[in-house]
């Protein structure tokens, strides 16, 4: 289920500027715990950002992305008040979706 994301979607000229903070451990699978055992890999694998029924961004991530990752991008064709949703899926199959309305720049 995961913890809530923090999403901001704001008009910047004719584009929508999106900033997303995700709450995730992003374990690489390379680290050992205090007892010397490998901490199993646990990271976000897929990102999908939707707007008006269309995918405006999709990404495949690996274990090299930082804990509590931050993503920043722009897309064209959005208007104030329309919804932007972000979904991540991790390598355990856990999934989280959050949604915000686009605000004025």
């Amino acid at each position: 289920m995961g913890e809530p994301m923090r999403i901001r979607a704001q008009m910047a000229g004719d584009k929508v500027e999106v900033r997303v903070l995700m709450s995730h451990e992003m374990e690489t699978g390379q680290r050992k715990d205090g007892g010397g055992n490998i901490v199993p890999a646990w990271f976000i694998q897929n990102i999908a950002v939707m707007h008006g029924g269309q995918t405006v961004l999709s990404a495949q991530w690996g274990p090299a992305v930082a804990k509590n990752p931050f993503m920043h991008f722009r897309f064209a064709g959005g208007r104030v008040g329309e919804k932007v949703s972000v979904t991540w899926t991790d390598n355990r199959g856990d999934k989280r979706t959050d949604e915000v309305a686009i605000t004025a720049g």
């Binding site: 913890e3 903070l21 931050f70």
Partner: peptide, 15 residues
């Protein structure tokens, strides 16, 4: 500075 994950704690705390 941009994208401070502290905000994740802020929204959780507000809730």
């Amino acid at each position: 500075q941009d994208g401070n994950p502290a905000e994740l704690w802020e929204i959780k705390g507000e809730d």
